[in-house]
C-alpha cells in the first residue's frame, strides 16, 4: 500500500494500532459459533444422538445372545462397534457439520457480511475449528458414558491408550474440519448442501467398517476405504478400545499407527491448501 494511514490523518493512526488481536477474535468467534450451533436444535440432536442411537441398534441387533466378533474369546459386538461410532461421530461433527453449515452461511449472505468487516479470515476459521473441537468432545463424552453405563462396554484404563485416543481424535477432528471448510464450496446452494454431503458421509461409513466388521468387507472395498480418512480414524480408535490381540484382525495384522497419523495429517494439509485456495465468501452466482 503506497498510502499509509498515518500520513493521512493522525487521529486515524491511533485506531490502526489497536485493532483487536486475531486470537481474541478467534475466541469470540468460537463462542458465537457455539451459541448458534446449540440453538439449531435439530442439528444438535442429530449430531449428539446419531452415534449413540447407531451404537444402541448395532449392539442390540448383532449382539443378541452374547454373539461376539473374532476368534475365542471374542469381542462383544457393542465393544467392537464403539470405535467406529466414535470415528463416525467425529466425521459428523467436523466434516459434515462444517461442509453443510458453511454452505448455508454462504447462501444466506452471512459470509459476505463478515468479509466486509475487519474480522481477519483466520479468526473465522479458528472459530470454526474451536467450536468443532468443543462439540466433538461433548459428543464423544456422551457416547462413551452411554457405552460404559448402558451397554457395559469396558473403557481403556491405561494412559498410553488414552494418549492414542487423544492424537487420533485431535488429528481426525482437525482434518475433518478443514476438509469440511474446503468441501463447503462444492454444493451449489445451501439447500443442496445436505443432499451433496450426506451421501458421501454415508458411503464412507459403509465402506470404512463403521457398520460392518472391517475384515468382512470385500478386499477392493477395503482398498477404496483406505484412501479416505474415516477408515484410518476407525482403525486408530479400534487400537484404543479393543484388546491388544484384536490387532491380528486388521488387514495389515497391525494397528498401523504411523500410517494412520500420516493419512490424517495428509488430509489436514490437503484440506488446508484446498480450503485456502478455493474458499468463497460469496455465492457462486454473485459476481
Amino acid at each position: 500500500m503506497t498510502v499509509t494511514p498515518s500520513t493521512r490523518a493522525t487521529d486515524r493512526a491511533s485506531r490502526t494500532v489497536t485493532l483487536p488481536s486475531t486470537l481474541a477474535l478467534s475466541l469470540a468467534r468460537t463462542q458465537i459459533e457455539l451459541r448458534q450451533f446449540f440453538r439449531e436444535r435439530d442439528a444438535v440432536v442429530f449430531i449428539f444422538a446419531y452415534p449413540v442411537i447407531m451404537l444402541a441398534i448395532f449392539a442390540s441387533v448383532f449382539g443378541q445372545d452374547g454373539t461376539t466378533v473374532g476368534p475365542e474369546p471374542g469381542i462383544p459386538f457393542g465393544q467392537y462397534f464403539l470405535p467406529g461410532m466414535v470415528a463416525t461421530g467425529v466425521l459428523l461433527s467436523s466434516f459434515q457439520n462444517l461442509a453443510m453449515s458453511i454452505a448455508v452461511e454462504r447462501d444466506e449472505g452471512g459470509l459476505k457480511r463478515l468479509r466486509g468487516t475487519p474480522m481477519p479470515p483466520t479468526a473465522y476459521f479458528l472459530g470454526k475449528v474451536g467450536s468443532v473441537l468443543v462439540t466433538s468432545l461433548a459428543q464423544v463424552a456422551i457416547l462413551l458414558v452411554v457405552a460404559s453405563t448402558l451397554f457395559g462396554i469396558d473403557l481403556p484404563t491405561t494412559a498410553d491408550r488414552w494418549v492414542t485416543f487423544a492424537w487420533v481424535f485431535a488429528l481426525g477432528t482437525a482434518s475433518g474440519a478443514v476438509c469440511g471448510v474446503a468441501f463447503s464450496s462444492v454444493p451449489r446452494s445451501g439447500k443442496s448442501a445436505s443432499a451433496v454431503v450426506t451421501p458421501i458421509v454415508l458411503v464412507l461409513q459403509f465402506i470404512s467398517g463403521v457398520f460392518f466388521t472391517f475384515p468382512s468387507l470385500p478386499l477392493w472395498m477395503q482398498q477404496v476405504a483406505a484412501l479416505f480418512p474415516l477408515k484410518w480414524m476407525a482403525q486408530g480408535m479400534r487400537s484404543v478400545f479393543l484388546p491388544e490381540w484384536a490387532e491380528q484382525m486388521e488387514p495389515a495384522g497391525a494397528w498401523e499407527h504411523p500410517m494412520t497419523a500420516a493419512v490424517l495429517a495428509g488430509y489436514l494439509v490437503l484440506g488446508l491448501v484446498l480450503g485456502i485456495r478455493t474458499f468463497r465468501w460469496k455465492r457462486r452466482d454473485d459476481g
Binding site: I32, R35, Q36, R39, E40, E105, E108, G109, G110, K112, R113, G116, T117
Partner: peptide, 14 residues
C-alpha cells in the same frame, strides 16, 4: 468502512 449489503437473512438464531 461500514457496509450494508442488499438483503441478507443470515445468523437467524442470534
Amino acid at each position: 468502512v461500514g457496509i450494508v449489503l442488499q438483503s441478507a437473512n443470515d445468523q437467524a438464531e442470534l
